[in-house]
């Protein structure tokens, strides 16, 4: 217990207290500070920041939903339809992209999607298009990058929970007259719910906290809240504002996760347990 407490205290709690106090410093003029909530107020009064957060949250929710939609059949296939070697190979396929750094993965997408990139060149080569096409620098490319980056974190908890689903439950679902859809809705999904929820939480948080993917793939219109925090800290030297944004991100993302748990009627303990 003691090492855990020391770890929590020194690496999580103390820095956060530090950051919270910092976030309450209002910069009135150079070298003049007052204590107050204006850094927080700034977030709500300046539509730019508020909109950036809303956009980041919505995009992350969408990325989470897409990851779930693609990840669920993949996980079901891995957990239930294949055995032994094939299963290991498929699982490895999901994992291989994570053997290289996120930066390299993102550059990989840039090479594929850019105007002079692989896909555009290929389309011109086979004559589907006359001129180069820019696939990069838009919200779709951000979404592709986020889903790709998050896939493993959805597939792993899903495969684990689906694996623990007794096949006879599925068979019983059919045997008692259920259609495939009904079995999925009444038996498979309720059983997989803890995995779905924990996968979604992880993917949502990863997307929300992602920095590289939106910045590199999003281009000029990409706005991501973490980018805003980074900017405040590193290029604006406005640590006070950055800390306040950091706290707002923590609080608002926790609220969204809480709301998600309420809607899906799950509790954090049975999701993580």
């Amino acid at each position: 217990m003691a090492p855990l407490l020391i770890w929590l205290l020194s690496l999580i709690i103390i820095p956060h207290i530090d950051m919270f106090i910092l976030s309450l410093q209002e910069k009135v003029a150079p070298r003049v500070y007052e204590t107050g909530f204006s850094n927080y107020a700034e977030f709500f009064t300046e539509p730019l920041y508020w909109n950036t957060f809303a956009r980041t949250a919505l995009m992350s929710i969408l990325a989470t939903a897409l990851t779930l939609l693609i990840g669920f059949p993949v996980s079901y296939y891995i957990a239930k339809m294949v055995r032994g070697r094939v299963r290991m190979v498929l699982f490895l396929l999901c994992m291989i992209p994570f053997w290289v750094s996120e930066l390299v993965r993102t550059f990989g997408w840039m090479i594929l999607l850019r105007e002079t990139g692989v896909i555009s060149s290929f389309l011109q080569y086979i004559g589907l298009t006359d001129g180069p096409i820019e696939f990069l620098y838009n919200d779709v490319s951000i979404m592709v990058g986020l889903v790709y980056t998050s896939m493993l974190f959805m597939v792993v908890p899903l495969v684990t929970t689906l694996d623990s689903l007794d096949n006879s439950l599925v068979e019983a679902g059919y045997d008692l007259g259920g259609s495939g859809f009904r079995v999925l809705r009444k038996i498979v999904i309720p059983h997989a719910m803890p995995g779905i929820v924990s996968g979604c939480i992880v993917v949502f948080m990863l997307s929300l906290g992602n920095y590289l993917t939106p910045v590199l793939l999003g281009g000029k219109d990409s706005l991501w809240f973490t980018e805003q925090i980074y900017t405040q800290f590193i290029t604006r030297f406005n640590w006070e504002q950055g800390s306040a944004f950091g706290f707002l991100l923590l609080i608002l993302s926790s609220l969204i996760v809480w709301a998600g748990l309420k809607i899906s009627r799950q509790t954090l303990s049975n999701t993580m347990g």
Partner: peptide, 21 residues
């Protein structure tokens, strides 16, 4: 005829009661 269309029902070895219901 698929299992969900047959006039037979099965009691499974481990019963397969749906734990979520």
């Amino acid at each position: 005829v698929p299992p969900n269309k047959r006039p037979v029902n099965m009691v499974f070895q481990h019963l397969a009661l749906f734990p979520m219901m």
